[in-house]
Amino acid sequence: MKETGDGQGTDRFRAWMSHTPARLDVGRAGTRPPTKDMLRFRLDHAAAVDAVYGEVKPETLDEFGLFSADTQYRDKEHYLKYPGSGRLLTEESARMLADRCVSAPQVQIVVSDGLSGRAIDDNLADVLPALRDALAVNGLAEGTAFFVRGGRVGVMDDIGRLLKPEALVLLIGERPGLVTAASMSAYMCYRPGPGRRDSDRMVISNIHPGGTPPVEAGAHIGTLLRKMIEQQASGVKLDV
């Protein structure tokens, strides 16, 4: 077998490594990873865990005048153990939405922390204005946007039951990975309501500066919403 570590091999492996985000060529101390790589891993994991247990900053919501509704999530532990609790609003929040929101809007925008509050803090300021511009360009009228604390994707159906929008878009924090703890998804559904399935929804995922750029995502969501309303369908039935 060839000798290792010659200059040429080094350059070629660096080039190969540039094709993957995997944590390669870290070296070792005995059989253990070097301290700086161990700490980098720990930092990325810490950021992911903190994103799960963190809350969306009040300033983020204030900036866009979003008021807060609650699901039946109770607390983080209950939210993680019983996903169903994040799919239903509390009775109090349901009453509040009935009071404060436009009923049967063309497009209902909902924002939720999901599994990463940081995803909302980091991306909403780029996604939401771009989305609103796109709604205007596509001639779509928006209802009353709000924030849902402790939401799961299925909460779209509970909101659909209450507010009866033609189309609903949920901007929600994704389960954090080590690459980024602040990735957002946009789930969309035509006439959401009880009994809708995953196949009835569309999603643009991986929205963060290193993935789907937030501003582009906002424009893309607007186009999809227009098609959903034109074709009166979403999910696998939509011809995109």
Binding site: A22, R23, F41, L178
Partner: peptide
């Protein structure tokens, strides 16, 4: 085994 325990595709460790 995955590099540094981080699976960069499946997003778990």
């Amino acid at each position: 085994g995955v590099p540094m325990a981080d699976d960069c595709m499946l997003n778990y460790q």
